[in-house]
Each structure stands twice: as structure tokens, then as C-alpha cells.
Amino acid sequence: MKERIFAAEGLIIRTRVLGEADRIVTLLTREEGKFEAVARGARKTKSKLAAGVDIFAHGRFTFHRGRTWPIVTSLDPIERFNWFRDNPDLYPYGLYLAELTDRFNSGEESCPEMFQLLLDGWQLLGGDVDHALLCRAFELKLANCGGYSPQMHFCTVCGCEVSLLFSPKQGGMVCSRCSATDAVKITAGTLALAKHLIEIPMAKVTKLRAGAEQKSELAGLTASFFAYHLDLGDLKTRRLLPE
């Protein structure tokens, strides 16, 4: 039996209005996975909760298990990632990471790696980093959290090591003998970049720079891979990214 009162460290990845003054928030938590909760009165100007139950909020929340949704009873704010509200260029990027995470994560099973990934992503976007590369690294690592990482090191079919074709359908690199119809040629530079992004920790992405061609090739690669395997073709925020 679940406790009536519980606490969790969470990131708010989505909000919507409920009734006259309430807000429903979608939280990704370190301990309890992803779930929706109600913040009562959060849209009133005098609400003590309001500032802490908005999108991009990071805090320690306590909940009371309600009949339909858990109810946020108190919170201890940790970070608000104010750069997303202050900088209109960063806002869509922050939301893109949120939407991707939301769509990728289906239920209440907790995944601390995913929580940490989003936390790192939001944190790093506020600093000196190539936004597009950060998004690609985030996408690849998110896929890895779900066990869907594309195979970049050798041919997915025969295992040989000479392959510069990427096939979303076959789940990664393929050689010319094994390639399916959807395989596209990618340059050695883009392949190296993709491998590198998969391996390095998020914080190291801040040091990376890449040419426009490599970035657009890599963007096409991750987009097609996600579209094929995860049915994430229709991401609302992606069309508002400047890339």
C-alpha cells in the first residue's frame, strides 16, 4: 500500500490549467518517475506555490495522494532555470528537451539517469554551449536510457567495420552489402561526432564545436532514427527551434 504523503525531487516538464485557479503539472522525479500532480490555487497572484510550480522548476516537492491526482502540498525550490524565461532564444530549446523527455517516458517507472540527463541539459543550456549539439547529445543519451541507442561502431547486420551508411530501420550503421533502402550516406566526420556524443558525459558537450554540415547531417540522423523507432515524428517544439 502506498503512503498518503510522499516526497520527491522533481523537474516540471509540462503545465496546463485546471478549472479557475489550479494548475496541473507533469513532473519527472528522481525517485518516483513521471506523473501528473495538481497545484491548487497556483494561478492566483497571492499563491505561495505559483512561482515554484511552473515549467522548468526544479525542487523538492511533497504530495498528498488525492483521489485523481497527487496534490502538491509544499515545495522547496532548488533551481528555476531563469534563462528560459528571460531569453526567447533558449526558451524553445528548454521546452524541446522537456517534450522529448515527456514523450519518451511512458510511465511511473523511475529512471534516475533520465532525470539527471534533463537536469544537466537544462543546466548546460544556460551556459556557453552549442545548442544544436547539446540537443543531439541529449537525444542520443535519452535513447540510451531506454535501451534504443543506435549502433554506430560496426555494421548492425554483419558486424564488419567498414560502414558509412546509416539506416534508421536497421538501427544504426550498415555496410554497403547489408544496406536497406532507407540507408543514407554520412561523412566520417559526422559518424565520429555521433560516437563522441554518445560516449562523453553531458558536461563535456560544452567544449564541442562542429561545422554546419556535420550538425545538419547529425540532426537528420537522430530525427529519422527517432521517427522510425519511437514514433516521435510529431514533436511540437521541434518546428520552433531555430535550426
Binding site: A50, D54, I55, F56, F84, R85, D86, N87, P88, Y91
Partner: peptide
Amino acid sequence: PNVEGDATAGYLAR
């Protein structure tokens, strides 16, 4: 004065 409204304000100002 929430994230959405602030981001919109920033966008408009620019």
C-alpha cells in the same frame, strides 16, 4: 508573470 508570459514578453520586446 509566469514562464510562458515572461518568455512571450521577451520575444515581443525583441
